[in-house]
């Protein structure tokens, strides 16, 4: 029973993570490959609070504080990287964000007070299913409502055509930075949930491979689609567990399966399951594949 509950919790956390990258990658069209870095910053920052600075108050209050710390810490990193990098186009941003997340991992590896390469232990367990699914639901609503607001439309127009967006009055840099900071911050909250759920963190949990995994979840579901991110996160979180039941060694298979899935997807349905659209939107919009 505990095992299934843990999978369910992981699904909720990955829904939040996938949605947060979807804001940057799917809505705004910016190619970030260091998303696990923001996740890690949030996780470690709120774990530091939990281990060294926790207040003697109700765990629920402490969890709320930890989530805020996770959000702010990751959002600040998003700001620091975003300001110089968002003026770069496409591939440069991807490379800069990989660099950031790897540097971050190495810093954590070499910081004894947060466990270094042994991992960070004894983190208080403040999280539970309510927190995980509450956050997933809140982020889902946030993303859906954003899409239907003027600010969300501005962000999406950048993905569609930067020059046209600019000519429609959209301040490119401001909206790119906004997406980047908020996307990073939400990933930080997902990190906080992991820290106070597993009570243990290891720098390799936030490696480049995980950035790729989250990206694959976004792309599988459809860049820009909230429904897609949810479905992508569910499928790709549960799939390795099914593989484990079959008896394979998950950590070796996961990457190969993802790669194979990506190739099949790109050949058969490059826009992902939903494209940029939502589950119930297709009936309204005409001519959507």
């Amino acid at each position: 029973m505990d095992y299934y509950l843990q999978i369910l919790t992981n699904v909720g956390i990955f829904i939040t993570l996938t949605l947060s990258l979807n804001l940057i990658n799917g809505y705004c069209g910016q190619f970030s490959l260091g998303h696990a870095g923001f996740w890690g910053v949030g996780a470690y920052a709120s774990a530091v609070y939990g281990v060294y600075f926790a207040l003697p108050i109700d765990p629920a209050l402490n969890m709320a504080i930890a989530l805020s710390i996770g959000f702010v810490a990751a959002a600040l990193c998003g700001l620091l990287i975003g300001i110089p990098c968002l003026r770069l186009k496409g591939d440069y941003l991807a490379i800069a964000t990989i660099g950031f997340s790897e540097i971050l991992r190495i810093i954590i590896m070499n910081t004894e007070s947060i466990g270094g390469p042994r991992g960070f232990t004894n983190i208080p367990r403040w999280s539970n299913s309510w927190w995980v699914w509450g956050i997933a639901l809140a982020v889902t609503l946030f993303m859906l409502n954003l899409k239907r607001s003027a600010h969300g439309r501005a962000i999406i127009s950048i993905r569609e055509d930067e020059i046209a967006a600019e000519t429609m009055g959209v301040n490119l840099f401001r909206y790119k930075l906004f997406s980047f900071i908020v996307g990073a911050g939400i990933a930080g909250m997902a990190g906080s949930l992991v820290a106070h759920d597993q009570q243990f963190l290891h720098p390799n949990n936030f490696s480049f491979m995980w950035s790729v995994c989250i990206l694959v979840m976004v792309i599988l579901g459809g860049q820009g689609s909230v429904s897609g991110s949810i479905v992508g996160a569910v499928i790709l979180t549960i799939l390795p567990e099914i593989l484990k039941l079959i008896g394979s060694n998950v950590s070796t298979w996961r990457v190969s399966i993802y790669a194979a899935l990506m190739i099949i997807l790109m050949l058969t349905r490059p826009q992902g399951i939903f494209g940029p659209h939502e589950l119930f939107e297709k009936k309204r919009l005409k001519g959507v594949a």
Binding site: A154, A165, L285
Partner: peptide, 20 residues
């Protein structure tokens, strides 16, 4: 240069951006 994957109506709505 249209916003290709958006509806015709949303293309117009985006143009209202600075007047929101």
């Amino acid at each position: 240069r249209l916003f290709n994957n958006l509806s015709v109506l949303d293309n117009i709505k985006i143009a209202r951006h600075t007047r929101i």
